[in-house]
Design a protein around this nucleic acid. Structure first.
Length: 199
DNA sequence: AATAAACTCAACCGCCCGGAA
DNA sequence: TTTCCGGGCGGTTGAGTTTAT
């Protein structure tokens, strides 16, 4: 079975794995009425069979109303790279500079996009140029990522950013992906309409 | 059309830190 | 001073999806 679901805590009362829409609703309603914080007691008081950590993560990364979903803009990319060069993997610190973006989202973006790009240009460089010292290696790494971002027009990001546009709910045509009860990719509209239905 | 490979991202884990008792 | 607990963080995993062959 799913490792995430089976590996746990011997407490059978603690649920793990993907959140259901019902759980989301409970969490949203509870926070709307009582506010966030003291997550462990919040989880208990709300009647959620989740750890406080899990509730906090779900709220911060997904349910919070000010979470921005959708394409990371070229401007945001630039800022991420700039801040990463300055602070390293301080994702939450970086996220604070990007309103509506979560540390998790930025971390994932960095690992899947930027790091991949860096590896590619790194191997390209190794092929074309064998002479490097530590400083050169570092500066070339940064510049090979930063340079294209600064000089390309937004349309040049199309290929890089395209995957995003297919997985968020900004496009009405994508609605089919949001209504499946078996996954947890429902839109906020779904949740809100469920909330209304409950009243 | 089938299948393998690559990619994305939600969610978990473990560690650390700070505050309260 | 020490211990405990909650919160925050970065790293990692793996299911689901998309793309390539």
């Amino acid at each position: 079975m799913d490792k995430k679901l089976s590996s746990v805590s011997h407490d059978p009362e603690v649920r793990k794995g993907p959140w259901t829409m019902e759980e989301d609703l409970i969490l949203i309603n509870y926070i709307a009425n009582h506010g966030e914080g003291v997550w462990n007691s919040l989880a208990k008081a709300a009647g959620l069979k989740r750890t406080g950590k899990s509730c906090r993560l779900r709220w911060l990364n997904y349910l919070r109303p000010d979470v921005r979903r959708g394409n990371i803009t070229p401007e945001e990319q630039l800022l991420i790279m700039e801040l990463h060069a300055k602070w390293g993997n301080r994702w939450s610190k970086i996220a604070k500079q990007l309103p509506g973006r979560t540390d998790n989202e930025i971390k994932n973006f960095w690992r899947t996009r930027i790091q991949k790009h860096m590896k590619q240009s790194e191997s390209f460089q190794q092929q074309s140029n064998s002479e490097t010292n530590d400083h050169q290696a570092f500066t070339s790494q940064v510049s090979t990522i930063a340079e294209p971002m600064e000089t390309y027009s937004p349309s040049c990001y199309q290929g890089m950013l395209e995957p995003f546009s297919t997985q968020f709910h900004t496009n009405p045509d994508q609605s089919s992906c949001c209504t499946n009860d078996n996954n947890n990719y429902w839109s906020m509209e779904d949740i809100l309409s469920m909330q209304l239905a409950n009243y």
